[in-house]
């Protein structure tokens, strides 16, 4: 029973990790590529970490819960790095399928002028 749960969690986790990278590889532009790694991969690794937590907690050497730390850390940092990456891409005017709102370019060029 335990082994079955563990196996299912591991396979699901690996599957989501794979789907995240698949999204990175096959989506058409940068902004759509951003979605795979930030969501699917994070959940995949989270699932693997839960599996590992169960595995080490049932080894008879006390409860193991520091995996929670990595999971929490990933869930907090993934949106932050996604936001920064997408901000950087908007700043560099990376090619996009959907047109970015006009106010970004305006504010960006104003900020550039302000720094000179």
């Amino acid at each position: 029973m335990l082994e079955t749960t563990l196996s299912i969690l591991i396979v699901i986790g690996a599957l989501f990790t794979f789907i995240g990278s698949l999204g990175l590889a096959r989506m058409p532009d940068f902004y759509t590529r951003l979605h795979g790694p930030t969501k699917a991969t994070t959940l995949g690794v989270g699932s693997l970490l839960i599996a590992s937590m169960i595995h080490f907690s049932t080894q008879g050497e006390g409860v193991s819960f520091h995996e929670v730390l990595v999971t929490l850390f990933l869930f907090i940092t993934a949106p932050v790095s996604a936001h920064l990456l997408s901000k950087a891409a908007l700043h560099l005017r990376v090619r996009s399928i959907a047109p970015p709102p006009a106010q970004i370019e305006q504010a960006d060029s104003e900020a550039d002028r302000g720094r000179e």
Partner: peptide, 26 residues
Amino acid sequence: LANTISLTPGTVSSWLSPDRRSLVVQ
């Protein structure tokens, strides 16, 4: 709010306007 948006259905927050009145979401 920005982190929540990035973690939920197919949206990533991408840009906060300098006057902090609007958030651009992809």
